[in-house]
Write a protein that binds this DNA or RNA. Sequence first.
DNA 1: AAAAATTTTGACCAGTTGGAAAAATGTTAG
DNA 2: CTAACATTTTTCCAACTGGTCAAAATTTTT
Lengths: 231, 231
Amino acid sequence: MPPKRQHKADAKAAAHPHAKPRPLTRIQREKQDLILEAALDVFSMHGFRGSTIDQIAEVAGMSKPNLLYYFPRKEEIHRRLMSALLDTWLAPLKEMDATGDPFPEIRSYIRRKLEMARDFPRESRLFANEMLQGAPRIIEMLEVDLRNLVDEKAQILLGWMDQGKLAHTDPYHLIFSIWATTQHYADFDVQVRAVLGKDRGGEGRFEDAARYLEQLFLFGLTPRSTAPRKS
Amino acid sequence: MPPKRQHKADAKAAAHPHAKPRPLTRIQREKQDLILEAALDVFSMHGFRGSTIDQIAEVAGMSKPNLLYYFPRKEEIHRRLMSALLDTWLAPLKEMDATGDPFPEIRSYIRRKLEMARDFPRESRLFANEMLQGAPRIIEMLEVDLRNLVDEKAQILLGWMDQGKLAHTDPYHLIFSIWATTQHYADFDVQVRAVLGKDRGGEGRFEDAARYLEQLFLFGLTPRSTAPRKS
DNA sequence: AAAAATTTTGACCAGTTGGAAAAATGTTAG
DNA sequence: CTAACATTTTTCCAACTGGTCAAAATTTTT
C-alpha cells in the first residue's frame, strides 16, 4: 500500500490520535489567521449560506484550493470563528462581580459591551447572523454555557435587589436589554448612521450612546424633580 | 412579426405604459401571496443571498418555473417584501403623538413594537438581515423617509423634555434603545429561549419583557427609595 | 362548446458552488 | 546537495444556481 498523500497539515496526527500533533509552522499560523480574518468579513455580512469560499479566498488574497488546503471545508472556518467568538463575547458578562456595587458593575458592563460593538462590529454581526438563522451551529452552547452564565449573573442581580441596592425587576430581561441596546450599534450600524446623518453619525455616536444608556439604566427616564406618575 | 408570447401577467400593460393595467385575477393574487409568504419564511432566515428560488418554491408548494411566472426575478420578490415591510415597520412610530403626554405615548409605542416582535418575528428578522448586509436595497429609504420620520419624532421628544415632562436626554438614542430592546425578542429569539429555558421561555416571556421594559423606561433602575448615586 | 387567455410543467442552459486530485514548486533538516 | 516535507497552482467535477422556453394543461370568455 503506497503511503497516502498528505493533503492536510495534520494528517499524520489524525492517523495516530495519541501522537503529539506537530506544532503549526509560521506560515500555517499566518495563513490561517489571514483566512479567518477574511472569513469574518464575508460571513458577518452575508451569513453562512450567503458566503462563498471563492469570496473568502479573494478577500484573503489566495486561490480557493489553497484556502481549502488550510481549512478542508467551509463549515470548518465558520466553526473556528464561532467558537473563538463565544469566549470573547461572554467575557464582559463574566467580569460582573457580586462583591462590587450594582451601579458601577452594570455601568462598566455596558461600557465594555459598547466598546465591543465599536471595535468588533464584524464579530457582533457574525453572532447576529447566526442568531437570525436559528443558531444551528451553537445552540447547545447557548443552552448550556450561556444559560449557566446568565443564571449565575441573574442570581447576583437578585441579590443586589434583595439588598435594596437595585430596583426590583426581572434580571434576565435586564441582561437582555443591555445586550440589545449595545449590540444594536454594531448590527444596525447602517440604520444608525442613516438616521443620525453625516454630522451626528461620526465616531461621536458611541459616546452619545454611552451617555444615554448610562442615564437610561442608572437613573431612568422619569424626571428627577417629578414624582413618578401613577398608572 | 409574430405577436410576442405573453409570458408575464402584465406584459400587455408594460407594452403600453399608459394603458390601464388589467386587474389581477383571483389566482394571481392568491399565488403571489402564497409566494410572498413562503419567501418571508426563507429570506428571513437566510438573507437574500443565502436563499434560493427552489427553496421558496418548495415552501410555497409549486415548481420553480411556476414561481418565476409570477415573479420573473428573485430580486422582485425581495423588493415586494421589503417595501411592504417598511410601511408596517414605521407605523407604530408614526402614531407617537405630540399632543399626548410622553409616558403614555412612549409606553404604548413600546407595547406596539413588542407586539410586532411577537406577532411578526419573520418580518423583524427580514429587516434585521437586510441591516446586517448593509441595507443595500433600502438604504435610500432609510436616509430619506426613516430619517425624516425620526427627526420629526425627536423634535416631539425634545419638546416634552423642554416642558419638563421627560428627562432631558438624547432623543435619537432613546428611539434606538426602544427599537433595540423590542426587536431583540424577535431577532434573538433562539438566544432568549435558550437562556430562559423551557419553563420561563414560553409565551409569557413577552409579558415579562413588557413589564420590565416599561419599568426600565418609565422609572429607571435607580431604587426609588434611594437618592441617585453620585459619579 | 369553441376560442382565447391564463397557468403549469418538463426539458434545458450557462454560470457558480463546494470540493477533489494531482502535479508543480518551495522550504528545510541532515 | 538532497530527500522529505510543506505549500501552491492547475485542472477538473458533480451538484446547485437563477433563469429561459416551448408545449401542455387548465381556466375564462365568448
